[in-house]
Each structure stands twice: as structure tokens, then as C-alpha cells.
Design a protein around this nucleic acid. Structure first.
Lengths: 112, 112
DNA sequence: TATGTATATAAGCAATTAATTATATAATAA
DNA sequence: TTATTATATAATTAATTGCTTATATACATA
């Protein structure tokens, strides 16, 4: 089992210790998402969402990829913290329902 | 696998998202500890240590037990979050070295 | 080209955090 | 009893957080 430093792990846990970011990670485990989808799901301002994503990106937990006018965020499955992330997300309810709701509202972006 | 709510899990992660508290939990996984041992290990003021322990106690992650003039803290292995805690602590280095250091300094309290 | 949409960033602000110092309480020892 | 030790709590403070609003940029489309 890969052991990470206390400092690094604490930093990651601190980031995931926020309901919005934790749920974002749960969503990204199922599906890549763009910023505007998160805005609809969390009913939160676009800058607030962008700032949460920035924090996740800064520690390497997610990656971004431009697709037309959208920016698609994905889980970074290469980070040394990915197995920790998986273990943690295993303990929260499946976030699929939020994606289903998004589709039902006709808000799912299809940029693939 | 027991799933806990996003809110509850985020709260726990937020608490463990602090280097001192995360290390405390790693230590308690090996050994019960009293406040003054934590003070020596973390070289932090006694009130600061007490306040960290208070937070862990408030969410039920640890329990306390008075033994003479000492207050001994233990991991609460009954909480529904214990398996999450175990999974997380599995990802950090063994905290045993801190206990060994404590013993070498002659600071280990023997209140058993 | 002008307009609208998606996103990022900056500035500001209220709430929270993590420490400190000072003080109180409880148990032990002289 | 008095002093010492272990701990908790309160008040204070500086730093951080998580939002807001305002603005800038980039792309898409009419």
C-alpha cells in the first residue's frame, strides 16, 4: 500500500472536507463534468464552482481539458493520492442520482 | 460497505484535514494517549492540544477516560465512521516512531 | 462584426480556524 | 493546608475559507 506523507494527506483531506468538493469528486468518479453542469447541480454561482475546481486542480486531483466553449474536468487517476480518494469515495453514497437529475432537467452537456 | 452521508463524511474529513489531528488519530490507533503526551509529541501548547481533542471528541471519533490526574484518550472503534478512519490511516506512515521517541525521552506516561 | 455563452480571476467580506495567553478546576504530593 | 501537576475553558487574534460581485477572456453563433 502506498503511504503518503501526513502533510500531503492532511492537505487532501482538508480539500475533501467540504461537501461541495467531496460531491464533485464523487461525480467525477462516474462522469467527466464541465463547469456549468456543476453550477446546475450545486445551484451555486459559477465563480464559486470555478474556485472549488481550481483548488482540486492545484493539488492535482483533477485535470481539465478544453472542448469548444466548455472546460471539461476529469479525475486524475494518475495522482499518488488516487487510491486514497477511491477509498474515501467508497464511503459516500453514489452520486449518480445527481447526474440523473441533471439529465432529466435537460441540462446534461453533450460535448463528446 | 457502510455508506455515510456526504455531510457527515465531509465533516470528518475536514477534521482529519489537519496535520496534528490526523497524526493524533494515527497515534491513537496504536496506543491510548493522554493530553500531556500529545503536548510533548507535537511541541504545542496544552490548550491547543486540548482543543484539537475536543473537536475529535465532539464528533465521536475519540473517547476520554479519567485515570488519576490524567485524561486518557482512545479511538472510538464503535463510531459508524471507524471503517473510513481505518481506510484513511492506512494511507499515512505508521506513527509508531513518535511513540518510540516519547519513550526514549522518558516522557511516556504509564497510567495503566 | 456584434452578441451571447462558458469560464477564470480579482477584490471584498463575513465566518471559521488554529493558535495564543490567562484563568479555572481537579487530583496528587509535600 | 499549600504547592504542583494535568487538564479544560474563555477571550483574543491572525490567517484562512467560501462565498459574493465585478470584470476579463475566449469561443460560438447570428
Amino acid at each position: 500500500m502506498g503511504k503518503e506523507s501526513i502533510e500531503g494527506t492532511a492537505k487532501i483531506l482538508n480539500l475533501l472536507g467540504n461537501e461541495t468538493r467531496l460531491s464533485m469528486m464523487g461525480l467525477l468518479l462516474i462522469n467527466d463534468c464541465c463547469v456549468c453542469e456543476f453550477v446546475d447541480i450545486f445551484k451555486m454561482s459559477q465563480p464559486a464552482i470555478s474556485q472549488h475546481l481550481r483548488k482540486l486542480k492545484d493539488v492535482g486531483l483533477v485535470t481539465e481539458q478544453k472542448k469548444g466553449q466548455w472546460v471539461i474536468y476529469s479525475l486524475n487517476r494518475e495522482t499518488t493520492y488516487f487510491s486514497l480518494i477511491q477509498d474515501i469515495l467508497n464511503h459516500i453514497p453514489d452520486q449518480k442520482e445527481k447526474l440523473i437529475w441533471l439529465e432529466q432537467q435537460g441540462l446534461k452537456i453533450s460535448c463528446n
